[in-house]
C-alpha cells in the first residue's frame, strides 16, 4: 500500500516536471495577436506571410485569430489584439472614427464574384453588369434555384445588400432567398448543395474549388472594372496595444505593405490564378475607392 502511494506520487511529480519543462521551452519572447477576417486566413495567405516574417524576426510569434470582420474589430476595441486585418470599409470607418484603430494600411485587394449552378438558370453570365446580374437572379423562373445570403453582417453580406439596393429590389421576403448566417466557406458549400447562387470573394471560392468541395457551382459573373465588386483588405493597429508588441505589429504591417511580391505571388502555383493583388502600386486610387465604399452600406 505504502509502495503504491509512493509510486503514484513519483509518477505525478515526474509528469509535473515534464509539463513545466515543456512550457518553458514553448514560450516565445514576444507574441503578437492579430484578429483577422476568415477569408484572409482560410486561404493561407497570412500564415504564408508570417513564415516569411519569422525569417527576419525569429523572436516574434505572430498569432492569428480568424473571426468575422466585425468580431475582429470588436476584439480590437476590447484590447485583446494588437492589430486587425479586415475588409469591411464602412465598419472600419466607424471604428476609425471611434478611435479604436489607427494607421490604416491598405495592403491587398481582389474581387467579389457571383457563383451559381453550372446550368445557370438565371443566365447571369450574360449580364451586362453586376446589378443586371442580381436582377436576373431576382426575376428568374424558379423551381429550385436559391440565393444564399451570408446574413452575418460581414463585409460580403454588406456588399450584397448594397447591390440589391442598387438594383432597387428587396429579395429578403422571397422563399428562394436563404440567409445562412455563416462564413463564406459554409455559404459556398450550402450553395453547392442547394445549387444556388451566392456572392463570394474570389479567394475563398478558388480554395474550395481547387479542393473539389464545390463541384456543382461555378464562377458565373466577374468584373474587374465594377467598383461595387472591389474587395479591399486593410490592416490596422489597435490603439490599446502598446510597447514592444505594438512595435512588432507595426513592423509586420509594414512588412506586408512593402513586399508586394509576397501578396501577388501567393497561391499562383497552387491555384493557377492570383488570389490577391497587392495594393501598393495603386495607392492613391485605391484609397479613393475605399472612401467611396466606406460611405455605403
Amino acid at each position: 500500500m505504502k509502495n503504491r502511494f509512493a509510486a503514484i506520487t513519483l509518477l505525478m511529480l515526474f509528469a509535473t516536471i515534464l509539463i513545466i519543462y515543456y512550457n518553458m521551452h514553448s514560450i516565445h519572447p514576444t507574441r503578437v495577436r492579430i484578429s483577422t477576417t476568415t477569408s484572409l486566413y482560410a486561404t493561407g495567405l497570412l500564415d504564408y506571410i508570417a513564415v516569411k516574417f519569422r525569417e527576419l524576426y525569429p523572436d516574434v510569434e505572430i498569432q492569428f485569430i480568424p473571426v468575422g470582420s466585425s468580431a475582429a474589430l470588436r476584439y480590437a476595441e476590447r484590447g485583446d489584439v494588437c492589430a486587425v486585418f479586415v475588409h469591411e470599409p464602412n465598419f472600419e470607418k466607424k471604428y476609425l472614427d471611434m478611435g479604436v484603430i489607427e494607421e490604416q494600411k491598405i495592403f491587398a485587394f481582389n474581387y467579389f464574384i457571383i457563383v451559381g449552378p453550372r446550368e445557370d438558370p438565371a443566365n447571369i453570365s450574360m449580364a451586362i453588369d453586376v446589378v443586371d446580374a442580381f436582377r436576373r437572379i431576382y426575376s428568374a423562373e424558379r423551381e429550385s434555384t436559391y440565393f444564399i445570403s451570408r446574413g452575418d453582417g460581414s463585409g460580403t453580406h454588406t456588399r450584397e445588400i448594397y447591390i440589391w439596393k442598387l438594383a432597387g429590389i428587396s429579395p429578403t421576403d422571397r422563399p428562394w432567398y436563404k440567409e445562412c448566417g455563416c462564413g463564406m466557406d459554409q455559404a459556398l458549400i450550402i450553395a453547392n448543395e442547394l445549387k444556388g447562387y451566392t456572392l463570394s470573394d474570389v479567394g475563398t471560392y478558388m480554395v474550395l474549388k481547387i479542393r473539389g468541395r464545390i463541384p456543382n457551382i461555378e464562377a458565373l459573373y466577374n468584373s474587374s472594372t465594377d467598383i461595387v465588386l472591389l474587395n479591399i483588405y486593410s490592416g490596422y493597429l489597435a490603439k490599446g496595444c502598446r510597447g514592444i508588441e505594438r512595435r512588432y505589429a507595426e513592423l509586420f504591417l509594414n512588412f506586408i505593405y512593402s513586399n508586394p511580391d509576397i501578396v501577388d505571388n501567393f497561391g499562383v502555383n497552387e491555384y493557377g490564378v492570383r488570389l490577391f493583388y497587392s495594393a501598393r502600386h495603386f495607392d492613391g486610387d485605391i484609397r479613393d475607392l475605399w472612401s467611396k465604399l466606406a460611405g455605403i452600406g
Binding site: 473571426v67 468575422g68 466585425s70 468580431a71 475582429a72 474589430l73 470588436r74 446574413g151 452575418d152 453582417g153 460581414s154 448566417g181 455563416c182 462564413g183
Partner: peptide, 13 residues
Amino acid sequence: TTAIALEVAKGNF
C-alpha cells in the same frame, strides 16, 4: 445556439 454563434461572429457580444 447557431443564433448565438452568429451574434458572436457579428461582434454583437
